[in-house]
Design a protein around this nucleic acid. Sequence first.
DNA 1: TTCTAAAATTGAGTCAATTCTGTTTTTGTG
DNA 2: CACAAAAACAGAATTGACTCAATTTTAGAA
Lengths: 204, 204
Amino acid sequence: MSGLRARQKADRHRRIIEAAADLFREAGYEGAKIETIAAQAEVSVGTIYNYYQNKGDILGAIVSMEVNEVLNAGRGVVANPPANVGDALDTLLGIYIEHSLHYLSKEMWRQAMAISTQLPDSPFGQAYTGLDRTLTEQIRALIARLQTLGLVRRDIDGPALGELIFNNMNMMFIEFVKRDEARIAELRAAIRRQNRILVAAITV
Amino acid sequence: MSGLRARQKADRHRRIIEAAADLFREAGYEGAKIETIAAQAEVSVGTIYNYYQNKGDILGAIVSMEVNEVLNAGRGVVANPPANVGDALDTLLGIYIEHSLHYLSKEMWRQAMAISTQLPDSPFGQAYTGLDRTLTEQIRALIARLQTLGLVRRDIDGPALGELIFNNMNMMFIEFVKRDEARIAELRAAIRRQNRILVAAITV
DNA sequence: TTCTAAAATTGAGTCAATTCTGTTTTTGTG
DNA sequence: CACAAAAACAGAATTGACTCAATTTTAGAA
């Protein structure tokens, strides 16, 4: 069962993703035609739809790789957070934000976010929701860690706080990708300013 | 200049919006074909595109009416807030949330939100961003009012706090419309729980 | 009233995502 | 080594949003 067929399958998946990633970068998501992706990946249009339910799912596969890298990078911070609540939050969220435009352009993010709300039940829609939840969990883990370290008050509702912080960052990030001229430094500064209110409230 | 031509124009606008609203409700946004909207509004396809740049803008017009009603309803709360910070916030955000599904189905919200991130520079994209900003301003106005009334500490960064509260509510609302089975009561309860952290920090 | 320029309308045509159906390739069995 | 069933592929056909050139309607001047 896992002979030629499986190998060809994996290879075609890879070729499609590579072709799509290249074209999304060059021509933008809308500008990249399925026909062109198919040609570049040396498969037919029909085959692409055999591998992915729709164009959005191809982008979804790329976004998922990016977010998983970010999650990985975040683990280090949770394990060893700066000894100051404000800095700890800023460091973790900073990793998310600084990483975000490595492989994905703002236009790709806009499309990905749009698709995830438009089709929440498509494979990518569900995956994206899952990634958001995992990011939220990572922030919650950081808070729990800071509580253990005695830097954050024990009586704080950690899960609710984590979700609040994630939701705010995510919304700020959405506005950020919506404006091409918005800068990462400004985004981080705005989020720091908002979190300052929370930090003051939760620090021991 | 404001004779027959202007009257016909207004009338056609109305007919298009009514036809679209009916069909969006019946068949969903994707299910409603421009051709069908045109037929029901008794205009041609071309005419629709003379009035709206794209399908999303039609939905946008409907969403804008809804949000403007919500903003109106919110004015009363800002002018006369409950004498308790938690209740004041809950009342204002409650109005937003309870109103939200009056005219728009969750599917319509999903589409509207998706379009506003996908095409932030389209007429509707810009309008939607403007509406979000206005809602944020209203929350900020409430906070300022509560500060004036001596219920919220003066040294709190009101604008940042208002944005934080709005962003969190908005993100929670997005997740809410993404899940058809999600209930309004649960949404409100979750937001209250999150805001409790803030309320504790800002109350005099 | 008649005429002309500007504004608006029309619907057939274009374009790109997605679907569908017939064909080819792979697999496992006798 | 055949061969039948299952899986995957190909690309033509379909679909629906959006465009555009030709036609019709309105406004306002003579």
